[in-house]
Design a protein around this nucleic acid. Structure first.
Length: 741
DNA sequence: CTAGTGACTTAGTACTTTATAC
DNA sequence: GTATAAAGTACTAAGTCACTAG
């Protein structure tokens, strides 16, 4: 199934983050059709209306938002409490990880390796909804029993090995075997943990005022700033070299927020950002970072040790008897917001987070983290239906930020595993779904046709779902459901192909998606229909949004959402490409090249791009020089071999014979080195603007890669670095060479 | 149905460390 | 050893998607 269906026509054609070339958006902003969606009867003549609506509404909305922010905490609290009471035992099947994983009709032998029996069993157990309520208890008991017997398990802590055995506490910390959580039972009651203890977050270091010799000038005259204003000024000064600081919006937002931090005197004096001279500050910070770089070994070591201490103290938590690594235990320091693309809020002040902004989440029976002396947490709660340890509300978008666990943790790993299992279930019914949406292209109902065409794009092109976004709050980017007429161009015939759709839009992170795709005639006709009588900035799928789409998908397969298609298509593409590209006679570097190429095919499909490294051209040249040198060396070696051979023919003694052998070896070695370099060059060239990391980390079922490594004798370290191996420990442990996605 | 919220995954870039070349 | 490049890590923004209240 599938494979060829997805030949990806997608050329990563120069896709660049588009800042200026995609301005086209701005001019339409004013009448974006958010509201259009509501009216099924779209009224074309309303533009002036919308204009009016938007400008007045925006302000209103902003005010609204501010109010919400203030009230939200309490509202939230109340809601939580209620929930807890109700939630006690009731919501069982809904949230439980693999519970929803398997479709009933699934064939028994999903896994081929016998080793998996255990986990397979568990999945099936969970799967059986009927039995669940009866089972929960016994399962939980079993688990509880099991866990009671376990001591706190701790991961090896790297270099810190000195304090092994002194005192009980330390003894407990002794590294044990890696915990194989994937061989254990999973909670079935929707709780994410039973016990959680941690030390709370690490706050950003307090502001250190500048030394008095570092001056700020306004309008050519020196001016002493209050600490509050100075701090914000330094944020700007630190970015002076950055392109951001030349952008109008950035400057405007910065200046507005900066003025809020000024005292009245400063406020009255400093009225024009262009008259501000931050250069001395900027110089100071440059010098400071230079100094940091040129520190002596001892100083650097000291810093490193301090860091390690912090990590050991705050970087781990205890969750259900295991010591687990926290991902981001440091609170984001204050600074200027750097949005990506044309972000309307770039340059705004991201304010400092204080203890009173922080909500702590941990178990009731744990030792709660202490706020810094003289401060209080906003709240300490005990919600085991969520995975986060700490949260706070950020002031730019008003969204919540979290401190959560590392990808190597059980809680993240289980979820990740589950994600790939859902994708594999899709594999089993994707044909059916494809047939269905093809049928739906003919539907009488517009909304069904739109849904079907959108789904086709999501499937074929691995587009993201495309939620609606609040206008003016974020950069103007789109996904499938939010595509606008202006983002596609139809050509009945182009470059010798029929029915070509040309996509050109900014996706997540304002990365440009550009692709020319020949589509089926029906799709083409439908698109023409959808575009009829619409303005460029009207929604292409005006009867569709992600909620509707996902509701539909849910009906087609339990747990199916738009993003599952991305996961599925990415993983299946990798598997196929590996099959296709791997050459059994190749040596290891060549096999790795094949792997990278397969990986790259996926990255292209998913449009994972990166800025070409600044030093790209130069490093490419260097490599070429090396290759040339190696070639010379090779021909020399060959020449020598030849003469040695000739020599041997004449002389026929042991010594010359031996010399031939050595020369032969030398040639072989050099050939291999050359080949390695050439492979490297190809790989790098092809990788110029493509980022492999994202797909490797988020879309490719790691068991495919592990199986491939085992099959071809490639050390898994060549594919996954240490961090990645930790994240995918479950896959390394369970995938055998015959694993099939 | 819609708007808003919350939790969690996915994303590219900036910075830091390590490996390799000289 | 030092300089440079590559690899790895930290950071945090920007998505997805479920759920709830009105």
């Amino acid at each position: 199934m599938s494979g060829d269906h997805f030949q990806n026509e997608n050329q990563v054609d120069c896709g660049s983050r588009v800042n200026d070339s995609h301005k086209h958006r701005d001019k339409h902003k004013e009448h974006k059709l958010k509201d259009h969606k509501k009216d099924k009867e779209r009224d074309k003549s309303k533009h002036s209306n919308n204009d009016y609506k938007d400008s007045s509404d925006k302000k209103h909305r902003e005010k609204e938002k501010i109010r919400h922010k203030d009230g939200s905490a309490d509202k939230h609290k109340e809601k939580r409490k209620e929930e807890k009471i109700k939630d006690g035992k009731i919501k069982k099947e809904k949230e439980n990880g693999f519970g929803s994983m398997h479709v009933k009709s699934e064939p028994e032998d999903l896994y081929h390796a016998p080793k998996h029996e255990k986990s397979l069993k568990r999945e099936r157990d969970d799967d059986d909804v009927e039995f669940k309520s009866k089972k929960i208890k016994t399962e939980d008991d079993k688990k509880a029993k099991k866990r009671k017997h376990e001591d706190v398990k701790v991961k090896p802590k790297g270099k810190v090995k000195k304090e092994v055995a002194d005192g009980k506490k330390k003894a407990k910390k002794e590294p044990e075997e890696k915990w194989k959580w994937w061989e254990e039972e999973r909670a079935t009651d929707g709780s994410k943990w039973k016990f959680l203890e941690h030390k709370g977050p690490v706050f950003a270091p307090p502001y250190e005022p500048l030394p008095s010799r570092v001056k700020f000038y306004y309008d050519g005259k020196q001016m002493k700033l209050s600490p509050e204003a100075e701090e914000v000024a330094t944020f700007f000064a630190k970015m002076l070299d950055h392109e951001y600081t030349t952008k109008d919006i950035f400057r405007k937002n910065f200046f507005k927020d900066w003025r809020k931090e000024m005292n009245s005197e400063e406020k009255s004096k400093i009225t024009d950002l262009n008259k501000c001279d931050f250069n001395e500050m900027a110089e100071f910070f440059k010098a400071q970072s230079e100094a940091r770089k040129s520190k002596t070994k001892e100083e650097k070591l000291k810093l490193k040790e301090e860091n390690e201490r912090l990590l050991q103290e705050y970087g781990f938590c205890i969750m259900d008897n295991h010591r687990e690594r926290i991902a981001n235990f440091r609170i984001e320091p204050p600074g200027l917001f750097r949005g990506r693309g044309d972000h309307p809020k770039m340059g705004m002040l991201k304010r400092r987070i204080r203890p009173k902004d922080i909500i702590i989440n941990c178990s009731k029976d744990s030792k709660h983290p202490e706020p810094p002396p003289g401060t209080k947490w906003k709240e300490v709660r005990h919600d085991n239906k969520v995975t986060w340890l700490v949260s706070w509300t950020e002031n730019i978008q008003g969204s919540i930020k979290y401190i959560m666990l590392n990808p190597s943790s059980r809680i993240k790993g289980e979820k990740d595993w589950q994600k790939y299992e859902t994708a594999r279930r899709l594999k089993k019914c994707v044909d059916r779904i494809r047939n269905q949406y093809r049928d739906d292209w003919k539907s009488k109902e517009m909304r069904i046709r739109q849904r079907a065409v959108a789904l086709y794009f999501i499937d074929k092109l691995a587009l993201r779902a495309g939620n609606e976004k609040e206008e003016g709050e974020t950069a103007d980017t789109v996904g499938c459901c939010s595509l606008r007429v202006e983002h596609i161009k139809l050509s009945p015939e182009k470059d010798g192909q029929e029915f070509v759709v040309e996509f050109d839009f900014l996706g997540k992170d304002s990365i440009r998606y550009y692709n020319q795709v020949p589509v089926e005639k029906r799709v083409f006709k439908n698109l023409q229909l959808f575009m009829e009588n619409k303005e460029p900035d009207d929604d292409l799928f005006d009867r569709l949004n992600t909620t509707v789409l996902n509701k539909h998908l849910q009906e087609l397969m339990e747990g199916l959402t738009a993003k599952v298609f991305r996961t599925y298509n990415a993983s299946i593409t990798l598997q196929q490409q590996l099959k296709q590209l791997t050459n059994s006679e190749d040596n290891i570097p060549a096999k790795i090249l094949s792997y990278n190429r397969a990986n790259r095919a996926v990255a292209i499909l998913c449009n994972h791009q990166r800025a070409a490294p600044k030093t790209f051209e130069k490093s490419m040249q260097n490599l070429q020089t090396k290759i040339d040198a190696k070639k010379d060396q090779l021909s020399d070696a060959k020449r020598e071999l030849k003469s040695a051979k000739a020599d041997a023919k004449v002389r026929r003694d042991e010594k010359t014979k031996k010399s031939v052998e050595t020369k032969k070896k030398a040639v072989e070695r050099i050939e291999e080195q050359l080949m390695k370099l050439e492979v490297q060059a190809t790989d790098r060239e092809e990788n110029k603007q493509i980022a492999l990391g994202t797909s490797k980390l988020n879309y490719l079922d790691p068991r495919i890669s592990v199986a491939w490594c085992k099959k071809w004798g490639v050390p898994v370290e060549k594919i996954y670095n240490k961090t990645q191996r930790e994240k995918f420990a479950w896959a390394l442990d369970m995938a055998e060479e015959d694993y099939e996605f």
